[in-house]
């Protein structure tokens, strides 16, 4: 078997088309697909100041690299990196070390904010006492800081490294939990309503599988070790991820099927929920939210401040 395009030994078989590609053809295919997503869904506008949320992992590093590669010659578009240090010993400290080297190499400005400094405690400290739903509390704090800090950095867009697997998991999770309204806000570019305090999120890797991102990242030499968050396996998302991966192995194309059918539904969902949920400001911190108090302030008051 050889590469469909150039008869060289392939490095990957694409699950959605049964095509096998060699290193160079795969890299071209990957970059073309990201550019097509950016163009088809108008992820980037003139004069955009794009803050890229980076963890140091393969998805965010790939997103940062490609946005920088595609737009570095555009004088009107700025690309800067923003990282959140949750304080996960042996995981985040390692990935941030890698990220700092990467940003230095590509001359990208990197801003790092930590839970310890912003909320007073690391995630490790919080989770020693609060053992329920680690991904939920961490996700709330991370999203809170990403929006707040990117706004303070003057962002017009916040780019994240969410890939097709992440999005397929979110769609199924929202179905299972009857949270379809949350799905209505998702897609390659998020949000239904405009709000001056809420930075629009863009996901250039939306149509690329996690396996493809890993392969690209490996072939580009971005990293050779891929760590998994130590809190990840216990999560509800972890269970949904395993279920979808089992289906994908038995019925190839499952993940693409979830995303493709969801993209058909998305305009209907966005229209249905366009008037729902007024965006309020948290009475405690002033950040945008749907209730009187945002989830971050809820966790801060009910969990973080009572931990010694």
């Amino acid at each position: 078997m050889s590469c469909k395009n150039c008869q060289i030994k392939p490095v990957i078989k694409l699950t959605n088309s049964e095509r096998s590609l060699c290193k160079n053809c795969f890299i071209k295919y990957f970059e073309k697909k990201v550019k097509k997503t950016i163009s088809d869904y108008e992820l980037v506008d003139k004069n955009d100041n794009i803050v890229v949320a980076v963890s140091g992992g393969k998805d965010s590093i790939t997103t940062l690299y490609l946005l920088n590669k595609i737009f570095s010659k555009r004088r009107d578009i700025k690309i800067i990196a923003l990282a959140i240090d949750e304080g996960i010993h042996g995981y985040r400290d390692e990935s941030l070390k890698h990220l700092k080297k990467f940003c230095k190499k590509y001359k990208i400005k990197l801003n790092i904010y930590s839970y310890k400094k912003e909320f007073g405690k690391t995630l490790d400290t919080i989770l020693k006492t609060y053992k329920k739903v680690p991904c939920s509390i961490c996700g709330v704090f991370r999203r809170y800081l990403l929006n707040k800090k990117s706004r303070e950095l003057g962002a017009t867009k916040l780019a994240t490294g969410h890939n097709l697997d992440d999005e397929a998991q979110s769609i199924i999770m929202n179905y299972f939990r009857n949270n379809i309204q949350v799905s209505a806000r998702s897609g390659p570019i998020t949000g239904i309503k405009r709000d001056k305090k809420f930075i629009k999120r863009i996901k250039p890797l939306y149509f690329i599988t996690e396996k493809e991102v890993t392969a690209y990242s490996f072939l580009m030499g971005f990293m050779d070790k891929f760590n998994e968050c130590p809190y990840n396996p216990d999560s509800y998302r972890g269970k949904v991820r395993d279920m979808i991966n089992d289906f994908e192995a038995k019925y190839p194309g499952t993940k693409h099927g979830i995303i493709t059918s969801f993209m058909e539904l998305l305009p209907v969902l966005k229209d249905k929920y366009k008037d729902a949920n007024e965006i309020k400001e948290c009475l405690s911190c002033g950040e945008p939210c749907s209730q009187d108090k945002c989830q971050a302030c809820y966790y801060l008051d009910s969990v973080v401040k009572i931990i010694k």
Binding site: P10, I12, G57, R142, E210, T214, F218, E228, C229
Partner: peptide, 23 residues
């Protein structure tokens, strides 16, 4: 990097890398 269809030999050094990272 090699595909699933690739034939492997006794002398090969094989590494299996997880694609799941999370966050």
């Amino acid at each position: 990097l090699i595909t699933e269809e690739e034939k492997i030999k006794e002398t090969d050094k094989i590494r299996i890398l997880s694609v799941i990272s999370g966050g």
